[in-house]
Design a protein around this nucleic acid. Structure first.
Lengths: 235, 235
DNA sequence: ACAGTATTTATCCAACGGGTTAATTTTCTC
DNA sequence: GAGAAAATTAACCCGTTGGATAAATACTGT
């Protein structure tokens, strides 16, 4: 029986191992934060020995930074895949909001990692030349979309693209990253299907109404209480 | 010389001690998170012995929960002081945004604590009957303000007050809680005076424009680039 | 097939950190 | 002012944790 595993003891797989380590580390750091993460758990989750972490990546901090850089790399790459240039301005903004919302939904660890890094006042990020060089294409996309919208008359006002970018991210990010406490406070599950649909509709409606000056149907009219619902619809 | 401190060894002050402990704990937890917080540092910061924490409050988790409850208690109490009922609807919304923004600015630990608690998926908050019973007065305030705004014709659309509340919080919260990473990404300090003023103007402009359908002057027109700034001003 | 290197395992350890125990000092009360 | 109760200090306990060392095992080229 001791012989059974003779030929199958283990095989080398440096690249695979490195990937499994980073994936496990991502899970661990996003689930427990930097201080709460346990190096041993990462090793176990990666199906590896603790020594492997140090061999393939580095100590806990380097591991964390690698994960963070990977997270930024991933979102930037997906962002680049979204081209809003050829859409008409309101549709482009809608797509942008939907992308942001869905990306955050699909990648909850990204939210956690950002929260963790901000609690650390971006101490690690500041040291990463890699991340600093990864500019989001969205700011420029927004700048041209807003300009086109203003020129075409779709938008009533020109907005600073950085502010708008932050606001769009904020509306999704806060809702999701704080859904746990908010759900307790409001006594309802903010993450069930219906609530999520309503949230997306609200965000799109809010931003488009602000930009175009016209109330979008989606801007949650249905839920309006009591009052004889003075719904002013888009002309 | 050993005698010098004979009469001044120490004096009792249970209430004061408890307050100093909670204040120190608030600092520590907001600066380092739950796992990163060090019980010894809290004791030192409170000018006390570690044993005192357990004597006056409890173990680390209980300490943390006490701090969290205190934080909610404080904001709820300030919220109650703000009465928006008698203001005209757009002004009420503006005040609400300004209050939220300023409260977050004045109480950065509150932001950190919420982030920390959300990383823990509100595990502790769920156990706190105290916090669950502290309803924010803002949701009802917003509900009546929106209703009045719709009835008076100031607002073009009725919004779900919970969504609006979350959105207003989101715009400030995300900007401030993520300012560290955002500042690195954008290569500029989001917390300097000018940036903060611009942010507030943007948020007010965005929300009011959405509600009223009319572009507010503050909705950052000044920073609009290149394009022959098609500024549509409020009539 | 063998030497050399890359990869992985099996232990070890010193520092740290939360929590506890027991003694000491102050304050209250009668 | 004696004795009890409350508040505070000092010292210790012990599991955990990040990190290090050394040895074993699998691959590679020659």
């Amino acid at each position: 029986m001791a012989k059974a595993k003779r030929t199958l003891k283990w095989q080398r797989d440096p690249e695979g191992m490195r990937l499994r380590i980073l994936e496990a580390a991502k899970q661990e750091f996003s689930a427990h934060g930097l201080a709460g993460a346990r190096v041993d758990r990462i090793a176990a989750k990666a199906g590896a020995n603790k020594r492997m972490l140090y061999y393939h990546v580095g100590n806990k901090d380097e591991l964390y930074l690698a994960v963070l850089e990977g997270a930024y790399d991933k979102i930037r790459s997906e962002e680049r895949g979204l081209d809003l240039e050829h859409l008409d301005p309101p549709e482009a903004i809608r797509r942008l909001i939907e992308f942001t919302w869905n990306y955050f939904l699909r990648n909850p660890e990204f939210l956690s990692l950002l929260q963790t890094e901000n609690l650390a006042r971006a101490k690690h990020l500041k040291k990463s030349t890699k991340v600093k060089s990864m500019h989001s294409p969205f700011v420029e996309m927004i700048r041209t979309v807003v300009r086109r919208g203003v020129d075409s008359g779709d938008f009533q006002v020109a907005v600073d693209p950085v502010q708008l970018y932050i606001s769009i991210a904020a509306l999704s990010f806060f809702y999701l990253s704080n859904s746990a406490t908010l759900s307790v406070i409001f006594g309802r599950d903010l993450l069930d299907k219906k609530a999520k649909d309503e949230r997306l509709a609200h965000m799109v409606g809010l931003v488009l109404a602000a930009l175009t000056g016209q109330s979008v149907a989606l801007f949650d009219v249905a839920k309006a209480p009591k009052s004889r619902s003075a719904v002013v619809q888009t002309a």
